[in-house]
Amino acid sequence: MELNDQVALITGGTAGIGLEAARLFVRAGATVVISGRDAERGAKAVADIAQGPGTVRFVAADLADLESVGALAEAAGPVDILVNNASAFPVAPTVEQDVAGFQRMFDTNVRGTYFLTAALVPAMLAKGSGSIVNVTTMAASMGVPGASGYSATKAALASFTRTWAAEFGPQGVRVNSVAPGPTITAGVLAEWGDGVAELGKGLPLRRTANPLEIAEAIYFLASPRSSYVTGSTLAADGGGTAV
């Protein structure tokens, strides 16, 4: 299989896009670690993913907590693939955004992702290979009312992608981003409700994505199929950033 002997860590891997990505990776033969804050949801995700030819296990972690980030890196051990997918998004109009929600978004999406990557990339650099995929958003490069804080955190990840590609590329580690458009997941529906469907109707493809469509883009960038691709952002957004 394509990912035999590869170890992958997918943060936020217990639901939505992360869960579908984990399913693809296991199917390709990878040893997969998924993380999330909810142990019950993690156990359910592991049971939901068909084992074989790869395997999957769950590690509880909160990326907003740096001690938890360090413990996750230690529990995962050396990895070949890192998918930075975990995200907090208590969205609100700028004048209504509370400080606690704003802080959690930056602690989880930016700080947690940064220091998890910093903890795991040395093993990749020493090995001379590896792939990091940051999951950003269409809203990182266009204005979406109500998503100011969230968009800013994802724009930071897009910047990380470019810088890390330049830093890590000479030692064989690739870094790319997937920027999804509106995607139907339980978390998105809880925050955006009917607004996510309305956003999808305004795209050239006139619809929202399902999580598997975004997971396929993540898999492509993580896998050997994109062996000469680094520092790029794959816009999986139904054409949203093209118009």
Score class of each variant (00 low, 15 high):
131 S>A: 13
124 M>W: 10
230 T>N: 07
184 I>M: 00
198 E>A: 15
111 R>V: 15
93 P>E: 14
42 G>P: 03
63 L>W: 02
239 G>E: 07
222 A>R: 03
2 E>C: 04
206 R>W: 12
33 V>A: 10
119 A>C: 10
121 V>F: 09
71 A>N: 15
87 S>L: 03
128 G>W: 01
218 I>H: 01
82 L>P: 06
222 A>Q: 05
143 G>Q: 00
216 E>D: 11
213 E>H: 02
126 A>D: 14
67 E>H: 12
36 G>H: 03
44 K>C: 01
122 P>S: 13
5 D>M: 06
24 L>A: 09
68 S>Q: 06
114 Y>N: 06
182 P>E: 08
118 A>F: 11
129 S>L: 04
106 F>P: 04
236 A>D: 08
194 D>R: 05
14 T>A: 00
216 E>K: 13
90 P>F: 12
96 E>L: 13
99 V>L: 14
150 Y>W: 10
168 F>V: 10
95 V>W: 06
7 V>N: 11
18 G>K: 07
101 G>N: 08
192 W>F: 15
28 A>R: 14
92 A>G: 03
89 F>K: 00
163 T>Y: 13
223 S>T: 09
79 V>S: 03
218 I>K: 01
158 A>S: 12
165 A>M: 10
3 L>R: 01
67 E>V: 09
62 D>E: 14
180 P>L: 11
21 A>T: 15
31 T>E: 15
50 A>R: 13
182 P>N: 05
41 R>G: 05
171 Q>R: 15
175 V>E: 02
110 V>E: 03
55 T>P: 08
108 T>G: 01
174 R>L: 05
117 T>R: 03
241 T>R: 09
105 M>R: 04
26 V>C: 06
23 R>L: 05
22 A>E: 07
3 L>P: 01
76 A>C: 00
27 R>F: 03
232 S>E: 11
196 V>Y: 05
1 M>I: 07
